[in-house]
Each structure stands twice: as C-alpha cells, then as structure tokens.
Amino acid sequence: MSAFKTILYFFLLLLIQRIILDNLFIGEFERPFILFVFIIIIPNLPTWALLLIAFLAGLIYDIFNNTPGIHSFSSVLLAFLKDLSLPFLFDNEDEISLGISSKTFGFGRFLVIALVCSFIYNLSVILLTDFGITDVQDFATRLIFGTLSSTVLVYVFDILAFYRRKEAI
C-alpha cells in the first residue's frame, strides 16, 4: 500500500468515526472505535515511523474528540504490540510485507487478531477515561460491548476492502 493510499485510508476512517460512529447512540455503552483499524492495516514500516504515525493519528482524533492523550496513548500501545508480535504471526519473514488482513490470515485467524487488538484498544481507552476501575460491572459491560462492536467494524471494513481487491484481480 502506498503512503498516499494510507493517508487516504486514515482520513476515510476519521470521517466515518466522526460523522457516523460518534453520533451513534447505543444505550449507556461505549461507542465503537474504528480508528484503530488504521493501526492494523498500516503497512510494514520501520518501528519509529509506525509509532510516530500511530501517535499522530491518535492525536488528530483526540483533538476532534476533546480527549487529549487517551487515543494517542492507546494507538501507540497497539502499534508497539503489533510491531512486537508481527514476526510471530507470520511463518515466513517474506510474508510480513503483505500486512494484516483476512486475505493473508484467513477469516478465522484474522478474527482472533481483530478481537485481541480491539480488546487492548478498548481496555486502554476505558481505563484512561475513568482513571482506573470504579464500578466493576459497568467497566466489564463497556469493555465487552466496546470490544465486540469494534471487532464487527474491523470485519466489515476488511470484507469491503477484500471484495474490492477481488474485483481488481
């Protein structure tokens, strides 16, 4: 994926998050975050570049959302963990450049990765928003709901991209 395309993806995700998802009302639950999909689909870069881009992406959303630091922290954390785990996810080092998608991993394995990423991201956001755990039940429902809804979004986004790739072939 070219650098230009990546930036385009980021702004597309930012628009979706800001115009649609932030206006969703789903009871008392945390709204789903799609922005961290960007960290997952971002191509294989040098570590410093990946971390810096993740920080900037989180910061831009933070500015819109009036939550300084919360999403920057979470996206840098996710990017760092992604960078650490990449060599273990792929059997073959040459495949790393393919990036994470259902195409390279198959739907089942991709689901697990999406769930884990979504869990880490939501956990970090909720902990930083509340500054710790005050109400365990409330915390758990928000975490579970946030994780699941974000995972569904990752999947929808991946399927859309997948079919587009298929047509291109």
Partner: peptide, 16 residues
C-alpha cells in the same frame, strides 16, 4: 523502539 515507545507514551499520558 523501546525508547520511542516510552517517549510517546509519556507524552500521551502527560496530556491525559
């Protein structure tokens, strides 16, 4: 990578 990671996380946390 560790240094950049820690640096960025501290920046983000100080914002929070």
């Amino acid at each position: 990578r560790i240094f950049i990671f820690v640096l960025l996380e501290i920046t983000a946390l100080s914002l929070v």
